[in-house]
Computed example of a mutant assay.
Amino acid sequence: MAGGSQGSLLFHCRFFLLTILVSSARPLSPLQLMQVEADTTSSGEKATARSPFSIALENLQKQIGYEFKDVGILRRAMTHPSFSEENHRALGVAGVYLIQSAVAVRYLSNDPEISGSDLSSKVVKMSDGSACARDALALGLEKVVRVAPKTNATSAVCGAYRALYGAIALDSGTVDSAVSVFWNNHGGFVSAI
């Protein structure tokens, strides 16, 4: 809609509310009327309160430099199995393979003569639990992931970290987007591993 049409729609909505107030046997108080206006956005849509989790997801997207088309995928990625049946387990499986493939391809690109055992060792070092937990904590995922009390925090953030990249691949429809975000947030190529 054009800007003028939105203003017209808003005028008609307010006129409709005023008509209801005038004809109602029990009119809304000025405070109730202000609440109706506060609960409505400028486009006339119902505004929704944002939870701390929603705010954390918005901040995470800004931090990693990727905006989800379907934030529900990111919600799932940041939900530990201890918290809900709708959780990050499958996305984490995709994410770990994505990370391992990204690392392997990066090392092979840098050194096509690398031995299989050296490559395997480097992949393991960059995708094992300690590397995963370190990278997850660097992103502050411990403040984002939803987890039940008394759950191992390291495994919770590590699973969420891996699931994040699986979620990006699913949301974007391409592994390349997830790999790009991984390297941008991991600090690029680390040759000293």
Rank of each mutant, 00 (worst) to 15 (best):
G3H: 06
L60F: 10
K143S: 13
R146N: 14
W183T: 02
D135Y: 12
V157Y: 01
F68A: 05
E142W: 00
Y97H: 12
V181M: 03
K150S: 11
A2K: 10
P52N: 06
L21Q: 06
K125M: 08
K69P: 00
L17E: 04
Y107I: 06
A47E: 15
V181F: 02
N152G: 00
V105P: 02
L141R: 06
A192H: 05
S109D: 13
G187M: 07
S54I: 13
R26W: 08
D70R: 10
N184G: 08
A2T: 04
P27L: 06
G140C: 08
V96C: 05
A131H: 15
G7T: 01
A138W: 01
I193P: 00
R76M: 07
E113L: 09
K46W: 10
V145M: 04
V144K: 08
L74P: 11
G129D: 04
L18C: 06
S8Q: 11
V175L: 06
K143R: 15
Q32F: 02
T79D: 03
S191H: 09
G72E: 08
F68E: 10
D176T: 13
G7F: 01
C132W: 00
F11P: 00
H186D: 01
A153N: 02
V123N: 15
Y97N: 10
G4T: 12
P27M: 03
H88S: 13
M126A: 15
D118G: 08
R50C: 09
E58G: 03
L164D: 10
R106C: 06
R75F: 10
I64M: 04
S82Q: 00
S121A: 14
D171V: 05
S23M: 11
S172F: 07
F83S: 07
